[in-house]
C-alpha cells in the first residue's frame, strides 16, 4: 500500500504540468493579487485583511486544482492504457487502489497550501498562530475529499480526451463561483445565490474561518460532508463499474 502511494505521488511530482498549474499559478496569483489589493483594512464581512484573505483563496485554489487534476485525467488515462488491468493481475487489492489514489490526490494539494502560506509570510508579512497554520493545512487536506470524489467520478465515466476539458471546466467553475479568484461580494447575484451550496465556497470558508480566529461553521462542515457523501457514492459506483471485469 505504501509502495503504491509512493509511486502514485512520484508520478505526479515529476509532472511539469502539475508543478506549474498547482504550485506556480497559485503562488504567482497570490503575489500578484496581494500586491494589487494591498490593504491592512479588514474586510467588513470576513474580518480578514486582503493579504490573509487572498492567501486562503489561493491556497484553496491550488489544493482544489491539484486534487481534481491528479484524479480525473490520470484515472481516465490509466483505464485506457491498461495499467489498472495490469495491477489487477498482481496481489494489489482493487480497494487499495482507490483508497491510495484518493489519499494521494488529497495529499498532492498540500504543497500548494504550504507554498502559498510561505509566500504570504515572506512577502506580505502575514502572521498567524502556529495552531492556525496547522488547522488551515489540516482542513485544506481533509476538505479536498469531495473534489477527489468528483475527479474519480469523471475519470471513471469518460475517456482521457473528455476528462481533460471536463476537469478543467469543473475546476474553473468551482474556483470562480466559490469566490477563490474574486471575493463573492463583487460577483454577480446569481452566482452568490448558489455559492453557499457549492463545496468550493465552503472549502475556502474552512481556511477563512480559522484565519479569522474561529471555528468553521457547522453549515460549512455539513455542506462539505453532503457533497463528499453524494459524490463519493457516485464515484465508488462509477469506479466499480469501470474497473470490474468486462
Amino acid at each position: 500500500m505504501l509502495s503504491y502511494l509512493r509511486v502514485e505521488l512520484l508520478q505526479v511530482l515529476r509532472d511539469r504540468h502539475y508543478l506549474f498549474f498547482t504550485l506556480a499559478v497559485p503562488v504567482g496569483f497570490y503575489l500578484l493579487w496581494s500586491g494589487i489589493f494591498d490593504g491592512d483594512r479588514p474586510d467588513p464581512v470576513t474580518g480578514l485583511t486582503s493579504s490573509v484573505d487572498i492567501m486562503v483563496s489561493m491556497a484553496s485554489y491550488g489544493a482544489l486544482g491539484a486534487t481534481l487534476m491528479t484524479t480525473g485525467v490520470r484515472l481516465a488515462a490509466e483505464r485506457r492504457s491498461g495499467w489498472l488491468r495490469q495491477l489487477r493481475v498482481t496481489p494489489l487489492k482493487p480497494g487499495t487502489v482507490i483508497v491510495v489514489k484518493t489519499l494521494a490526490a488529497m495529499s498532492l494539494g498540500l504543497p500548494a497550501v504550504v507554498l502559498v502560506g510561505l509566500a504570504s509570510v515572506v512577502f506580505q508579512g502575514v502572521r498567524l498562530d502556529p495552531a492556525q497554520w496547522i488547522a488551515i493545512t489540516a482542513l485544506l487536506w481533509v476538505g479536498t475529499l469531495p473534489f477527489a470524489a468528483l475527479g474519480t467520478l469523471i475519470g471513471s465515466l469518460v475517456g482521457p480526451d473528455a476528462a481533460q476539458p471536463l476537469t478543467l471546466g469543473a475546476y474553473f467553475v468551482l474556483a470562480i463561483a466559490g469566490g477563490m479568484w474574486l471575493p463573492l461580494s463583487v460577483l454577480p447575484e446569481f452566482i452568490r445565490d448558489v455559492a453557499g451550496g457549492l463545496p468550493s465556497t465552503r472549502f475556502a470558508e474552512l481556511g477563512r474561518a480559522v484565519a479569522a480566529g474561529h471555528a468553521p461553521s457547522l453549515t460549512a462542515a455539513l455542506v462539505l460532508a453532503a457533497w463528499t457523501a453524494g459524490l463519493g457514492a457516485l464515484a465508488v459506483a462509477a469506479y466499480r463499474r469501470a474497473s470490474v471485469a468486462t
Binding site: R14, S81, W83, R85, T90, L92
Partner: peptide, 29 residues
C-alpha cells in the same frame, strides 16, 4: 501472487523509471 501477465495494449507509467516500475510490481508479490 501466483499470476504474472503481459497483456495487450498495456501502456507503461510514463514518469517512473524502468527500475522503479519493475521494482514496484515485484514488491507487490
Amino acid at each position: 501472487g501466483l499470476v504474472g501477465a503481459m497483456i495487450q495494449q498495456g501502456d507503461l507509467v510514463p514518469n517512473l523509471t524502468v527500475r522503479e516500475v519493475v521494482g514496484f510490481v515485484g514488491g507487490l508479490y
